[in-house]
Write a protein that binds this DNA or RNA. Structure first.
Lengths: 301, 301
DNA sequence: CATGGGCCATGCGACATCCGCATTGGACTT
DNA sequence: AAGTCCAATGCGGATGTCGCATGGCCCATG
């Protein structure tokens, strides 16, 4: 029996919906459903009332929920405590950040925290949801991520300390070539869709994009030209003139800025923060020093 | 993180020896070692002091031991409790027994318990260690097994209720063919080994056999002819005249008794019990009724 | 100091499990 | 009655785990 199953069950008991709970737990709905079945099989009894909407727990499910909660909490707390007492001897600090920040921001972050500490760093990179899950699972000490207050990266991060390092903007870019920009016709009309360089379905930026559309003056019409979950790849495609795509301003360096420019900033941009997250409990002197350096860099401007 | 890892760690903390703990947990030493590593990796710190003999826990290990103990106990207790409250609705009673008992004793057992209950039975069969492990893991309600008080089937069974159903004897058999028996020369001498039909290394009966040898008047010399972990297979080989092999008397039915007979019973036999085991906590009305039927069958003779 | 035995770690190939995708089956809504 | 939302399941592929065999280490013993 995996304690991940317990966490799955707790998420399901909380959200009362397999699909949302699966999303929360960062697995497919299919896998999630089977994990709950595995847990029921281990217990030897059903936890969920079949064919009820929304999900309801059986009597056994209610009884088990408390034990699951207590056990998971105790195990995770003990792990955190042990890790905390080991921090002095810890050889390296583990940072997690999505690919886009690893490329555009890591140098800056290292400039802030590097000089003040003698430890080495281990950097976990991947998609936003991947690194967030790994941070929440305790695989990293500090998480860096884009985060819009209106659209949190992950609900579970709300119980963590959040430090906005600096402002960023998420806005549409296109090549500077006037003829191409004219041809795209952004933001388009229902009859004339513009070519969109889009994020993959599950990416955090895809959710941000949806959010932008919902708050826009009108729903534009578009046709997806290229889809990918890495901003840097999308940027290259935009540079090559294949269409319009949303990028965090921070990823557009001087070289790229010569080739691409924002389109119609006013209505289609979204403010967001580049944030650092850390657990609220003490993390040992070295990591605390790093965190203080981050805080200081913010307050100093 | 699997709670099996926690049970592994608790066994190791208790026994202070990887090899014994692995045996206790019914896995290879290699797998056991890797599971401890997995747990250490999940915790992010070492639990075992490297290069110490016997095994010693680190400070973190001592700290984690208590949490592991509490969490495992709580989870298993809650499972048992939930299962207990579900017993009325339980469709079938789960019996576990080694192959040899499934073939020779199940009919008798069913004759005792079958008439008094209306539920159906699910029978888990396998090697003794397999079914014992599954019973201990909660996959069965009642375990049937051979058990010699001097050589318990599994240490963990000592905390379970034990009911000796009837006596059995573990003793050497050979074909009735006089010429062959003469040729075997059992119990042999250092110079003239007898042909042994032996149990596989890890089988419970292999341990019993070793125990018999240790208590025998002299250490005989033998040569393994055939090795297998199923008594019934060994019996066929003995019938075919390939050598001498130890069998539980209960497996020798009338048909076999015409072809094989014990050899030198006095010094090479061992008394053992055919036992039923059950957890000490209440198990619900149906299973309690079965247990009472078993008890009654013993006291009535 | 050399040797042997007990003990834990690891390379390797085989096997089981778990995952994601796509789809089905079922209940409820419009 | 068609549409929508939701959980369960068949299937192919990836990932992890196992046992076996072996290697390296320490310690006890001659």
């Amino acid at each position: 029996m995996d304690i991940g199953w317990l966490e799955d069950f707790l998420a399901l008991a909380e959200l009362r919906n397999f699909t949302r709970a699966a999303e929360f737990r960062n697995v497919s709905q299919a896998a999630f459903s089977r994990r709950i079945q595995s847990l029921e099989n281990w217990l030897g009894t059903g936890l969920i009332v079949k064919g009820s909407q929304p999900v309801r727990l059986t009597e056994a499910g209610e009884q088990f929920r408390e034990t699951a909660q207590v056990s998971v909490e105790r195990l995770l707390e003990t792990r955190a405590s042990i890790r905390g007492s080991q921090f002095d001897a810890m050889s390296q600090i583990r940072l997690a950040m999505p690919n886009v920040l690893a490329r555009s921001e890591f140098k800056r972050i290292l400039g802030v925290i590097g000089p003040r500490t003698k430890t080495s760093f281990s950097v976990i990179v991947g998609t936003t949801s991947e690194v967030t899950a790994r941070y929440l699972a305790g695989d990293a000490d500090i998480l860096f991520a884009h985060d819009a207050p209106a659209l949190p990266t992950h609900e579970a991060l709300s119980s963590h300390e959040r430090l906005a390092l600096r402002r960023d903007r998420f806005l549409p870019y296109a090549t500077r070539d006037a003829a191409a920009r004219e041809r795209f016709g952004f933001p388009g009309t229902p009859g004339q869709p513009f070519p969109l360089i889009a994020y993959s379905q599950r990416a955090y930026f895809a959710r941000l994009f949806e959010h932008v559309l919902e708050r826009a003056p009108h729903r534009p019409s578009y046709k997806v030209t290229v889809q990918c979950d890495m901003s840097d790849v999308l940027k290259e495609v935009i540079v090559a003139g294949y269409g319009v795509g949303w990028l965090p301003q921070s990823t557009v360096d001087a070289a790229s800025a010569e080739q691409i420019a924002p389109v119609d900033e006013k209505d289609w941009a979204m403010e967001l923060d580049i944030c650092a997250f850390r657990p609220r409990h003490p993390l040992g002197p070295k990591i605390e020093a790093v965190w203080e350096a981050l805080c200081a860099s913010v307050s100093q401007g």
